[in-house]
Amino acid sequence: MCQDCGCGDVNLVPLELQTRILARNDDVAAHNRAHFRERGIFAINLMGSPGSGKTAVLEATARALRDGRNLAALAGDLATDNDAVRLERAGIRSRAITTGQACHLDAEMVHHELHHLDLTGIEYLFIENVGNLVCPAVYDLGQNVNVVALAVTEGEDKPLKYPTMFAKADLVLLTKMDLLPHLPNTNIAAIDDALARVMPEPRIIRFSAQERTGVVGWIEWLTSCRAALAGEMVGA
């Protein structure tokens, strides 16, 4: 209470903080990132709508490399470990993160699951996020790059509807390209145009897991990103 005049008003003191609300998540993400760096692992946060083809991208990646021995994955889903089972079958060492009601992965979930994943000999860790174009973009997991799978079936203006996700993307994999002949109202140039309005440096690889197109470019991109990171570490 105000002590000056006895008016009964509450004496309020502002406390300036200017702290990041998700600072705790960001701290754990930094810990994950340091862990990956020590082991020479390049971590990819693979995001996209449910059904955009994230798991199929990883299966195609393992096929192209003949075996997935240097690949590992954490697959996030609300329920079931179906994706992790599919990835294991493709030869990728995998663990499921079943989130229950949570619509995204956070750094702590990834950290926890890393304790159960043998990372010996692993060069690339894919974190397949929960299918969702909103919430996963908010949480840093400790990844080195963000990749978004966007299926051509999702509509030309999808990037404009979900700008936050695409603003954070380092690469967009335009998936299910083999379906394009069946989509008379979908124009690829319109998707490129939309992406250039939400991504400052739009990098897009046209991809079809079915027809195995775009896989070589995708693997080259991953390899060059990992090499660039290793170069930075040597230079540091």
Partner: peptide, 9 residues
């Protein structure tokens, strides 16, 4: 996504 300040009694 910032906490700017709080007001305390």
């Amino acid at each position: 996504i910032m906490l700017q300040r709080i007001e305390l009694e």
